[in-house]
Simulated scan of single mutants.
Amino acid sequence: MPNTKHAIIRYQALDKCFRNKSKRYFINDLVNVCQSAIENFTGNAEGVQKRQLYDDIAFMMSENGYNAPIEKDKMGRKVYYYYSDVNFSINNQPLTESEALELKETLITLNRFKGLPQFEWIESMTTRLEASFQFGTEANQIIEFDQNEFLKGKEYIKELYHAITNKTPLNITYKSFASNSNMVFELHPYYLKQYNNRWFVFGKNPNFDNITNLALDRIQDIQQANTPFITTNIDFKEYFEDIIGVTFNNQLSPSKIVLRIDESLWPYIETKPLHGSQKVVNKTNAFTDIMLELIPNYELEALILQHGEKIQVLQPIELKDKIYSRVEQLIKKYNCAE
């Protein structure tokens, strides 16, 4: 049985070689072609052994594989491989049982992307494949993703996505939680981001120096603006490296934040770090101290408060005082309720 890692990539590469009647492919040629195909697909150079390809060829010829009509002829002391049937291709054959299972599992995962603009093809493709291969719908009953199907604003993702890719400025009618009336923002959109099951669009509003972010569930309408698009050089992957969530304060720089984690909570924080910069600076049987390097914001405060008494802020003093003040207000509300 062939090594399954990158097997499909190798089968496809071999299939192209065996169908090519204008060139003879010897085993060393096949090794080079498969290595190039894997590197082009994954970005990583990975050695392919001759023994691996002999196993691949045997599998492709077998009933469990593709029943491929692979022939080999000698040229001097070397052997080259080809299809005896010029019209044969593994892509014209029915799926094997193992391929059908892999496809089924892939479709389950892809279903979580339904509704996103770059994945519009998924719903129709899933329906056709389920009908063609009789996958049925029972697969969807064994896995669930943390996604809010009733979230408002998802209908704007497609329009915003295309506005970003086509560099189209927009006039966005927006109603914030703090206002009862609508506002119209001119926005030159750059980036879409999901956080805590809500979607946000980031872009340039000419009236402000900093990047503006708008929650999609507060958008009321979107219209194209008749103005030249303002471009940006911001790398948004780096833009979010120094924060948790989506609230960014350009006036602040990343600072060292030290948190004391109760030992009962530590296994969860260890396996799911609060931030990529998380480092352990002290550990005892009762607690673990970690250090984060990021810009404090509302989302960080919410994350700390979410864990209640299990997390204590040690530094900076400004963040410690802010958390203390919020806890104090919470206690007052509970006392008033009595």
Results as ranks from 00 to 15, higher is better:
T4E: 14
K5N: 08
R10L: 07
Y11V: 02
F18I: 01
F26V: 07
N28A: 10
L30T: 03
S36G: 06
A37N: 04
E39T: 09
N40R: 15
F41C: 13
F41A: 15
F41T: 15
F41H: 15
T42E: 08
G43C: 10
L53K: 01
I57N: 00
F59T: 05
M60V: 04
S62T: 09
N64T: 09
Y66S: 04
A68H: 05
A68C: 05
I70N: 03
D73V: 13
M75A: 15
K78A: 13
V79Y: 14
Y82F: 14
Y83N: 03
S84L: 06
I90Q: 05
T96A: 04
S98P: 02
E99I: 07
L101F: 09
T106R: 00
L107W: 03
N111W: 00
S124N: 14
T126Q: 12
E130C: 09
F135R: 00
T137D: 13
N140H: 13
F145Y: 14
D146E: 14
N148L: 12
F150C: 08
F150K: 15
F150A: 13
K154W: 01
I157C: 11
E159W: 10
L160K: 03
A163L: 01
I164Y: 01
T168C: 12
P169D: 03
N171G: 00
S176C: 06
S176P: 08
F177S: 13
N182M: 08
N182W: 03
M183C: 11
V184F: 03
F185W: 10
L187E: 01
L192M: 05
N197M: 12
K204Q: 12
N205V: 06
N205E: 14
N210M: 07
A215K: 03
L216V: 06
L216W: 01
D217S: 05
Q223M: 09
N226M: 07
P228F: 01
P228R: 08
I230P: 00
N233A: 11
N233W: 04
I234D: 08
D235V: 01
I244V: 11
I244H: 02
V246F: 04
F248V: 11
F248Q: 09
N249F: 13
L252R: 09
L259N: 04
I261V: 10
E263I: 15
P267G: 06
Y268M: 09
L274P: 02
Q278N: 06
N282P: 01
K283H: 05
F287E: 00
T288F: 00
L292K: 03
L294Y: 02
N297H: 03
N297W: 02
E299I: 07
A302T: 13
I304D: 00
G308M: 07
E309D: 15
I311L: 08
V313Y: 06
P316H: 05
I317W: 06
I317E: 13
D321L: 15
Y324K: 15
S325G: 10
R326F: 10
V327S: 11
V327N: 07
E328V: 09
I331R: 10
I331D: 10
Y334C: 08
